[in-house]
Design a binder for these strands. Structure first.
Length: 268
DNA sequence: AGTATCCTGGAA
DNA sequence: TTCCAGGATACT
């Protein structure tokens, strides 16, 4: 579920809650979600919590890190007081000031222990962070290149741009007035400029509202509260409703196996 | 460039 | 019962 703004929200929360704390114990309830030997990190101190693309990185004192991907339904819940694991709890990380519950209904997400080298290799695969200088219109023109892939599909490609998922891809394309099916090699310079701005705008909005807890509300912040960006969706899951700009009915299509929402009139 | 697959659960 | 889901990857 979580995309850049959701993971960023979790990162900021956890940084305050668990930085400088020590790992006391790790209880694994589903081996697939934590395939490594927890003994490698028990006793380690947490330096900081970082984010790259949709991954969370809990940096540890000995150059190791916990590398976490929440995939579609992963949650990290922080509890100061003792709490019984939920049905979906797969891993419990006990610190000296509370417990971090890794809840993951669909069992797609995971936590891996990586050394500095392995971490560098993993992170090298991602494209630029949208909030970095590298994310420029010049860069976008270059990576779009001659490819005829639909723009919506390319936006979801983490090797091209890091952190955009289905919600923000749909929202950014509406804001930039670009049809999600448009081949990237057909985008004009003007469209690329609009898109670059629109991506930054919707991601900033997402962070401002603490992320999006969409229809099934699987995304929650570490204190179990919901984000509120879903109240500001322009097109995502709004098929059958009127476009907020021109009142045309929002359409839903399938692109690359993902639900895709757009205004047929505003986005040609 | 498409689509099958890993999983579970809620909605239609 | 079938379809759908904020992701990513391994295949045709």
């Amino acid at each position: 579920m979580p995309e850049l703004p959701e993971v960023e929200t979790i990162k900021r929360y956890l940084n305050k809650a668990i930085s400088e704390k020590r790992i006391v114990d790790i209880e694994i309830l589903s081996k697939k979600q934590f395939p490594d030997n927890p003994k490698e990190v028990i006793g380690e101190k947490i330096l900081s919590v970082e984010r790259r693309a949709k991954n969370l990185i809990i940096k540890l004192s000995d150059k190791k890190a916990l590398f976490i991907h929440l995939k579609l339904s992963g949650q990290l819940i922080w509890e100061r007081k003792t709490k019984i694991p939920a049905k979906s709890t797969r891993v419990v990380i006990s610190l000296n000031n509370g417990k971090l519950f890794f809840n993951e209904i669909r069992k797609l997400g995971w936590i891996k222990i990586l050394n500095q080298n392995q971490l560098d290799l993993e992170l090298a695969r991602f494209g630029p962070e949208p909030f970095s200088k590298d994310f420029s219109t010049e860069y976008l023109q270059k990576v779009f290149g001659k490819s005829a892939r639909p723009i919506k599909t390319v936006l979801l490609d983490q090797e091209k741009i890091a952190g955009i998922g289905n919600i923000y891809a749909n929202e950014a394309l509406f804001e930039a007035k670009i049809n999600p099916r448009k081949p990237v090699n057909k985008l004009t310079v003007r469209e690329i400029e609009r898109l670059q701005k629109a991506i930054l705008l919707v991601l900033k909005e997402g962070i401002k509202y603490g992320g999006a807890s969409a229809a099934d509300q699987l995304y929650v912040r570490p204190d179990s509260s919901h984000g509120s960006y879903q109240q500001h969706f322009r097109v995502y899951q709004k098929d059958g409703e009127k476009c907020q700009k021109c009142e045309t009915i929002i359409k839903r299509i399938n692109l690359g196996g993902r639900g895709t929402f757009f205004c047929p009139k505003c986005q040609r």
